[in-house]
Simulated scan of single mutants.
Amino acid sequence: MWNPLRIAALGVAVLGCVSSVAAAAAYPERPIRLIIPFSPGGGTDTFGRILAEGMQAELGQPVVAENKPGAGGNIGADLVAKSRPDGYTLLLAQDSLTTVPWLYRALSFDPMKDFEPIGIGVFMPMVLVSTNSLQAGTVKELVAYARSHPNGLSYGSPGVGTAHHLNFEALLDKTGTRMVHVPYKGAAGMNTDLASGNVQVAFTALSTALPMIKGQRIRAIAVAQKERADLLPDVPTMDADVPGYTARVWFGLSAPAGTPVAVLDRLSESLRKVMAREETKKRLVDIGYVVTPTTRDGMRRIMQDEYEKWGRLIKDLGITLEQ
């Protein structure tokens, strides 16, 4: 026999489910906040504002981009993690979410548990660049020189724990070479010293490298993806000399854990529709982005893979951003 209490509990569950579905069907009913956890003007901000504009047209409600910089993106991420899980506060997520748990011991949120992935919108390949005076002009020549001159070259990065730093360390590990790391407080100082020859090599995002390469201030050695970049068709790939090696950053959307699945699905669908628009795609490709949007599950798999990959490297090297 059915227990009256069990029947009542089942009824409450069904009503809750119906209520959730009804709320999701009406979503969105008011403006959506898109938290960009970095300062205006950077790659994260550029993509975030293009995405907000497209999603606003697709969803029929304002999508308001708000910059909340600080602590390497952690301030903005913490704000979203602690927001009501209703789909009205979203995070402009990027690959650094998979590294911060390993770099900060006292992190106030768990990037792998406190967020629901919505989808990755774009990827940005890294470019291996050098000062113009460096004699090694190919990856093979650079690796050969580094092997015969351990710590004889220096590489720059915008700071400890950045994608530029970690991807370069992954390259050194894969090729069995050693170079001196010179961290800067941002990309501007690194690029200035690279152009003047104070550091010899670096990884930089394609969008950042392009004007300097075109202006012949620095030299592109290789693009760190399996296919040549349309914006640098004469520059070879890293894969040609270091098989399987790639280096990239990505940008997407996340929501607070507990957000209704129907709302997440609606946002994921909207993200992919915006990325499929020819005018949006052209704007992004012209900057250097690779527009290959993922599903929610695709983003989750990429985050898990990178979380494990960077965790191993960071622990092996003893990298930390806290004393």
Rank of each mutant, 00 (worst) to 15 (best):
T280V: 13
G252F: 06
I314N: 05
S154V: 06
E269D: 14
V261D: 15
I35S: 07
G152A: 06
L321R: 09
A81G: 12
D95A: 01
E141N: 04
H181L: 13
S130G: 08
L171Q: 11
G186F: 01
V122H: 04
L5Q: 12
S254Q: 14
R248S: 14
V139C: 08
E141C: 07
D286W: 04
L128N: 01
L194W: 05
Y88C: 09
V63Q: 00
V285Y: 05
R219N: 10
P256V: 08
A22Q: 13
D95G: 12
R84Y: 14
A106T: 08
V235C: 03
V290K: 10
R105G: 15
A222E: 06
F168I: 09
L321K: 02
L128A: 08
V143M: 11
G48C: 03
L253T: 01
L171H: 08
G41Q: 01
E279W: 08
T177K: 06
R105S: 10
P233V: 03
P183N: 00
T295P: 10
V160R: 04
P28Y: 03
D230H: 13
R266K: 14
S83A: 15
V180C: 10
L284D: 01
S148T: 15
T46R: 11
G186K: 05
V143S: 07
S148C: 00
L10S: 10
M126F: 14
R277P: 01
D173W: 06
L128C: 00
K214I: 10
I314H: 05
G48Y: 00
R84I: 15
G119I: 11
P183L: 04
R219K: 14
A146G: 05
G197M: 02
V235T: 14
L142N: 13
A205Y: 04
I319P: 06
Q323D: 14
R49N: 05
D86Y: 09
D305R: 09
G72W: 01
A52D: 02
P293Y: 07
A93E: 09
M212P: 12
V14A: 13
V291F: 02
A257K: 12
N151E: 11
L313M: 02
V18T: 04
G258W: 06
D86W: 09
D265R: 15
P243M: 06
V160F: 04
R228M: 09
H181S: 07
F47K: 10
I7C: 08
L171T: 13
P62M: 00
M212I: 12
E53K: 04
I118F: 04
S39A: 13
L59Y: 03
N151M: 12
V249I: 14
L206Y: 00
R178Y: 03
A187I: 15
Y245S: 03
V291M: 06
L103R: 01
S270K: 04
G161I: 00
L91V: 06
W310C: 03
L153F: 07
L264G: 09
S39I: 12
R312V: 09
E322S: 02
P28T: 03
S20F: 00
A77K: 02
L142R: 11
V100P: 00
S196I: 05
V290T: 14
L107V: 04
V235W: 10
V285N: 08
G298N: 03
G189Q: 04
L134G: 11
N3V: 13
S207Y: 12
